[in-house]
């Protein structure tokens, strides 16, 4: 049975029931980055935390809290503390708290560490929010609409798929090398030694795969001189959305100016 409703869905713009998800991808990125920029001008960790909270709220508003929170915490809890430690331990300052050899903990270092760590939370927030609220193909569609050539979008999209494919491929190669007697289980040294037999097939496989893919895409008229069309499309940005984005930008610009002046 042919699913007519599904096929008909290509006749109208791709829309979901969520207003935030329906925003044009470029506008979403605009808003997220504008919010993130605030951190650079205020230099207060409390501001960074508030912006992080705003990102979490946006994820909730998009109905994507579940898919947002887990990668955000994983990423944030690794990168944030890392920046904190690096800054806190090595930053020189007047108010010494602890000193042993090259380890030199100062109040200034700790303050700066908190500052950096919370900025990293904001950066992670932007990245994860982009991945959970923007479909890659919608992004490339809107890029093409503003004049980016479609082979660039092909490169973006296929690199994303390549990462997924490489992960699967690595597992297969690991299995086949273990079956040849190469020890991959055990301590760090064993694992490092197992690296070469895995990397080289992965690398060569990717090259020959790329060649075949070029030929396959050539057969799909990729080199066609005609301007390409789009089966799947997005709605033209509504006036209200344009106004919203401009307002957000002006508001944030205002905040920043305020922050700099203060």
């Amino acid at each position: 049975m042919m699913d007519e409703t599904f096929i008909n869905s290509y006749r109208s713009p791709q829309l979901s029931k969520n207003w935030l998800l329906n925003l044009n991808p470029l506008n979403k990125i605009n808003i997220y980055i504008a919010l993130g920029l605030i951190t650079l001008f205020f230099q207060h960790w409390q501001v960074n935390v508030v912006i992080t909270l705003v990102f979490i709220l946006l994820a909730v508003a998009a109905g994507r809290f579940k898919s947002f929170i887990s990668p955000f915490l994983k990423l944030g809890l690794v990168i944030g503390p890392f920046f904190f430690i690096v800054r806190a331990i090595f930053w020189p300052g007047e108010n010494m708290i602890f000193n042993y050899g090259i380890i030199n903990i100062t109040q200034e270092g700790i303050d700066l560490g908190i500052q950096y760590a919370t900025i990293m939370l904001v950066v992670c927030g932007i990245l994860v929010l982009c991945t959970v609220t923007i479909k890659a193909e919608d992004l490339t569609y809107s890029l093409e609409k503003i004049g980016v050539p479609h082979n660039i979008s092909f490169m973006i999209l296929s690199s994303l798929q390549l990462i997924i494919d490489l992960k699967d491929k690595t597992n297969v190669i690991m299995d086949s090398q273990r079956s040849r007697g190469i020890e991959t289980e055990g301590n760090v040294f064993v694992r490092i030694k197992a690296f070469v037999p895995v990397l080289s097939p992965l690398f060569l496989g990717a090259i020959s795969g790329a060649e075949e893919k070029t030929i396959a895409m050539d057969a799909r008229a990729f080199s066609s001189a005609n301007p390409n069309t789009h089966l799947r499309f997005l709605r033209p940005t509504p006036a209200l959305e344009k106004i919203l984005v401009i307002l957000v930008d002006i508001l944030i610009l205002g905040l920043i100016i305020l922050g700099v002046v203060l």
Binding site: A216, N228, T229, H230, L231
Partner: peptide, 24 residues
């Protein structure tokens, strides 16, 4: 032979036609 850039089979089959500039 699968492009790796489309999320549904329907869109995958359409890819060549999009490149040729065929109307929706």
């Amino acid at each position: 032979q699968i492009s790796g850039i489309k999320e549904t089979v329907f869109e995958e089959i359409a890819l060549g036609l999009e490149n040729l500039g065929v109307e929706r």
